[in-house]
Design a protein around this nucleic acid. Structure first.
Length: 276
DNA sequence: ACCTCCCTGGCC
DNA sequence: GGCCAGGGAGGT
């Protein structure tokens, strides 16, 4: 599902195609996809006729910078994906937003569950909108060990929900949070403030390692294939996951069956022997 | 710090 | 036919 590696893989496909292109047409087929936009019509109105400057990312948010200080924000939710297509290509089911550019290419947002959304913001809206509370990007701006330790000190919240809190760190979702904790040997339910310095260091080291590994394999496409790369290929990190989705399967390190618990209404997969 | 909601395909 | 998956917002 789209977490930081999937969004970054998507961004890397999109950037060379979109940068310098002029947006010629915006078609919103499902009004619900345009959210957190006070006037929904602004989404199309602010993009059409404008040139794309850059395609950036912060956490799981894709940020397409457009001339006129407009930012086209895309969040893929949990079932969204972006498809780069020729306008003559048959449309996938649940193609909810289509943005055409002057290079004969369409950016199609496909999202069956419509948990994702798009918006087009001016600078002041960007600063006060959904990105305002985002913490540092987990890949590009990972805080140093002392800063992470200070952010966790004294907190009774379990370490995994804290890793999922986008205000604390932006980019980890359920899959990569579990993978990071496995790599660091830390039980997901441990109170964040109880981690010692060595454990914080291990956690910090695992975050870029796991995210880079996921990215190198094009991200994680689950069996539902909701997430695919913009060219239609599946990400191939699924086969390399250590714990996520592997309840009862042997731990890749020690062979103990992988456990599953629920934290904050979300599954957490871990090895009860390797993680304590 | 917790719960509910949104939404739909896939599975039992 | 009903339940499950869950990112993020909203509410208590």
């Amino acid at each position: 599902m789209p977490e930081l590696p999937e969004v970054e893989a998507t961004r890397r496909h999109l950037a060379p195609v979109l940068e310098g292109a002029v947006i010629t047409c915006v078609d919103v087929r499902r009004d619900r996809m345009v959210r957190r936009q006070p006037r929904p019509a602004d989404f199309g109105d602010r993009l059409v006729g404008r040139r794309v400057r850059a395609v950036d990312r912060h956490g799981k948010f894709l940020l397409t910078r457009v001339a006129g200080d407009v930012t086209w924000v895309t969040h893929l939710g949990m079932s969204g994906r972006i498809q780069l297509a020729d306008p003559s290509d048959a449309e996938a089911e649940h193609t909810n937003v289509v943005v055409a550019v002057d290079r004969g290419v369409e950016v199609r947002l496909v999202d069956p569950r419509t948990f994702g959304f798009v918006a087009a913001y001016l600078i002041d809206e960007l600063l006060s909108g959904p990105l305002a509370m985002l913490g540092p990007d987990a890949l590009d701006a990972l805080p140093d060990e002392a800063t992470l330790a200070a952010g966790m000190a004294g907190r009774s919240v379990a370490v995994k929900p804290l890793l999922l809190d986008q205000r604390f760190l932006a980019g980890l979702g359920n899959i990569y949070a579990d993978e990071v904790l496995f790599g660091a040997g830390i039980h997901p339910a441990r109170p964040a403030g109880d981690l010692n310095r060595r454990e914080v260091a291990a956690l910090r080291a695992e975050i870029p390692r796991v995210l880079a590994a996921g990215l190198a394999h094009g991200g994680t496409s689950l069996d539902d294939l909701a997430y695919l790369l913009p060219d239609g290929r599946a990400g191939e990190y699924l086969a390399r996951l250590a714990v996520y989705g592997r309840e009862h399967s042997p731990c890749r390190r020690c062979g103990t069956p992988v456990s599953r618990i629920v934290l904050r209404a979300r599954s957490a997969f871990f090895c009860g022997v390797c993680q304590s």
